[in-house]
């Protein structure tokens, strides 16, 4: 479904991603693990077209997308949930959803409407007219996910959704993502490996702009050496 092929991405003149390759198959949850600053967010931004790679290719469902603008990439079916939430603070919950709402033909019958999203996030249903800027971090995290869902993506890029959330909220988030993953493939960037591994089918570990290890989630859950080596727990 998604194939990232030896991409190199720069911020100005600093070379961040070095020959990163990865794939996400239909129906899969793939975790991108690694410590602070290894390039997880940059990988997401490269796929989304926000920081296009300078070399290498990205393919999505047969389309070459690494030269497309972000809005075209989104319309092909990739939804992006940024790491720092980036809700629209001056807009209400409902308005945040309206801005992102987009129906796609491939999804007829099983679309994420605002009603369905409110069912999944009952906290949001209680405050449709609250300004997003006035919500708690956990509520904002739910809203960014909800906002991306109503765009009806087939693949979700989720960047550190558990970051800065209280343990109880993280558990709640886990439940939500378990529902979402039934119908949407997910590429999940996380520092919190325990969280990521409880969702993922497959993992990549990144170090200094490179993917250095790839394995089934199960394997990493059981292999203490790998856990120690990459210090991801």
């Amino acid at each position: 479904m998604l194939k990232v092929d030896t991409i190199n991405t720069y911020y100005g003149s600093s070379h961040i991603l070095q020959d990163v390759s990865l794939t996400v198959n239909q129906g899969e949850v793939v975790a991108l693990l690694g410590r602070n600053g290894v390039g997880k967010t940059t990988t997401m931004r490269s796929i989304m077209g926000l920081t296009p790679p300078r070399s290498g290719e990205v393919y999505y469902c047969g389309h070459k997308i690494n030269t497309l603008p972000p809005y075209r990439i989104n319309r092909l079916g990739i939804g992006y949930v940024p790491e720092d939430r980036q809700v629209f603070p001056d807009l209400t919950v409902e308005e945040n959803l309206l801005v992102a709402q987009r129906s796609r033909n491939s999804k007829k019958g099983e679309e994420w409407t605002r009603e369905k999203v409110y069912e999944l996030f009952p906290e949001l249903a209680k405050m449709p007219n609250r300004l997003a800027g006035r919500m708690s971090g956990g509520e904002q995290q739910m809203l960014t996910i909800a906002r991306t869902l109503v765009g009806n993506p087939d693949l979700l890029l989720l960047d550190e959704p558990s970051e800065g959330l209280a343990p109880k909220v993280v558990l709640n988030l886990l439940d939500v993502l378990k529902v979402i993953k039934k119908s949407i493939s997910i590429l999940l960037a996380e520092q919190n490996a325990v969280f990521a591994l409880s969702l993922a089918d497959r993992c990549y570990i990144m170090e200094k702009g490179k993917t250095v290890y790839e394995a089934a989630a199960e394997e990493i859950r059981e292999n203490k050496d790998i856990q120690k080596k990459y210090l991801i727990f």
């Binding site: 972000p70 809005y71 989104n74 319309r75 992006y80 629209f88 308005e95 987009r102 765009g151």
Partner: peptide, 15 residues
């Protein structure tokens, strides 16, 4: 209004 606070995000949401 959304674009006036965050152009990039608006684009990533398909606008």
């Amino acid at each position: 209004r959304a674009a006036s606070v965050n152009r990039e995000m608006v684009g990533a949401l398909g606008v």
